[in-house]
């Protein structure tokens, strides 16, 4: 359900950009989705298929997802580590004084027309 709401936002943005560029049909939408963004790519593409086909401008339009790996910064030892494998605790120094650098993205990268 979460993904469906996001798809409605994507459709609104893509239609607006397409209209501004006098595009009649969009072939593909490319998304950047962070690993820890809470958006599941396979659910996003299912929702996309269902909703996009209801829009004449987006019928058959593909959705492509680039997954952005999540990276956390540790303030304890001033280094980066992969978030999904280690969570909030730094694997090098055990510090919990850490925060997410990237991996939370839900972005429309580009459209192909």
């Amino acid at each position: 359900m979460h993904e469906l709401g996001i798809v409605f936002y994507i459709i609104r943005d893509v239609k607006q950009v397409a209209e501004e560029n006098h595009v009649e049909h969009v072939a593909s939408v490319v998304m950047d989705i962070g690993e820890v963004s809470t958006v599941m790519p396979h659910l996003l593409s299912d929702c996309w298929r269902w909703a996009a086909d209801k829009e004449p401008m987006l019928q058959g339009c593909e959705s492509e997802v680039n997954t952005i790996p999540a990276v956390t910064w540790c303030d304890g030892c001033k280094s980066e580590y992969p978030t999904v494998a280690h969570g909030r605790t730094c694997p090098r120094c055990g510090s919990e004084n850490t925060w997410l650098l990237r991996g939370n993205e839900v972005e429309i990268k580009e459209i192909k027309v």
Partner: peptide
């Protein structure tokens, strides 16, 4: 927004958070 031509398909770069309008 930038544009380029690739394999007959034109790419329009958007680079925008899905949550930007709502925010």
């Amino acid at each position: 927004m930038t544009e380029c031509i690739m394999d007959e398909l034109r790419i329009i770069e958007i680079k925008k958070s899905v949550f930007a309008d709502n925010d």
